[in-house]
Design a protein around this nucleic acid. Structure first.
Length: 330
DNA sequence: TAGCCGTGGAG
DNA sequence: TCTCCAAGGCT
């Protein structure tokens, strides 16, 4: 019964799985970890180019650990949630200093790494080390909710019952459990999607409890996160400025009017002069990447209080560093 | 534990 | 245009 389901979905995965580099034969546990962290709340298409850059630049954890954390944040680009870059750098440091440069190969060991929670630990244990681990992500939760639970969507937050159900559904065979994890996740990602599932393409539609029940609608309406006018929006705009800046940047420039002491704005972009790098190379209204990023920040017309709060948050999180009135990445 | 933390493409 | 949401983790 369950074995039939396992076989069907695993066979489907063998035929239809996307060709992703972190699934390729030459993958490393480090590459798998980096992909899993990058993929947290972030679509595959946007992760691909950044993951390739990271693997080229930092093929081993020690390579990343040898650089300042700010380099990880800058190379993170616009993936979002830049604290993930910070945590990945911290994980690389721990792996290098406490594990001889090799990833822990158990769920428990992985769970101890910064930025690695229950999902990522199970995913790396399964996909990188071939262990039998119960992987539960948003795709798997949705597939289970429909296929087995007969519901349109899983609960707003992961429940203990869902965890138990996932454990029961996991194949006893180790190798098949790995394939099942990947297959279930893939099904949720490309067929059993959140908004408009492609049930006609689903290999297990005949076994789907939700379809059998007549596709009942969700029992609740997900609350979208606010964005415009939030601290997060301001933080994001500030981070864009810091990523663009190759040198420390005057804190005053974050405010719409720029420096208050009346210092003349200096035109040009970083590196345009032969003098040593200094904060005054950047100016409000200047051209180039930094000027553009500053313009986008100023366009938000954030009040001074909120700007202060957002910046304080970034400093507290370690995403920015302030030295003598100038800001830079860590 | 609910709220917070980015970003941009799809519908 | 605007809403939704994409392989979560942390506090």
């Amino acid at each position: 019964m369950l074995g039939r389901l396992h076989a069907t979905l695993v066979d489907w995965f063998a035929r239809e799985a996307r060709d992703l580099p972190w699934r390729a034969a030459g993958r490393t546990p480090w590459g798998v970890l980096v992909s899993e962290v990058m993929l947290q709340q972030t679509p595959v298409a946007r992760v691909l180019p950044v993951w390739r850059e990271w693997m080229e630049r930092w093929p081993h954890p020690a390579d990343l650990a040898a650089e300042p954390a700010g380099e990880a944040v800058r190379a993170w680009g616009r993936l979002g949630y830049p604290r993930r870059a910070l945590r990945l750098h911290a994980a690389a440091t721990v792996i290098t200093s406490e594990h001889g440069g090799e990833l822990p190969d158990t769920e428990e060991g992985l769970l101890a790494l910064p930025g690695v929670g229950s999902y990522t630990a199970a995913a790396v244990a399964s996909f990188a080390f071939g262990r039998r681990a119960t992987v539960v992500d948003t795709n798997i939760r949705r597939v289970h909710a429909r296929l087995v639970g007969g519901e349109a969507l899983p609960a707003p937050t992961l429940t203990a019952a869902e965890q138990r159900r996932a454990t029961v559904l996991l194949p006893a065979n180790r190798e098949q459990s790995v394939a099942w994890n990947a297959a279930t996740m893939e099904l949720g990602a490309i067929v059993c999607t959140a908004r408009s599932p492609r049930c006609v393409e689903c290999p297990v539609s005949d076994a789907c409890a939700w379809l059998a029940a007549g596709e009942p609608p969700p029992t609740y309406t997900p609350r979208g996160q606010a964005w415009h006018g939030t601290d997060r929006q301001v933080r994001g705009a500030i981070m864009a400025v810091l990523r663009a800046a190759q040198h420390p940047l005057q804190r005053d420039l974050l405010e719409p009017r720029g420096p208050k002491d009346g210092a003349p704005a200096m035109p040009g972009s970083p590196g345009s002069t032969r003098s040593a790098p200094c904060p005054t190379q950047y100016s409000a209204g200047g051209t180039g990447p930094v000027g553009d990023a500053l313009a986008r920040l100023h366009a938000l017309r954030t009040g001074p209080e909120q700007l202060e709060r957002a910046l304080a948050g970034l400093l507290a999180d370690g995403l920015a560093v302030e030295v003598e009135g100038s800001l830079r990445l860590p």
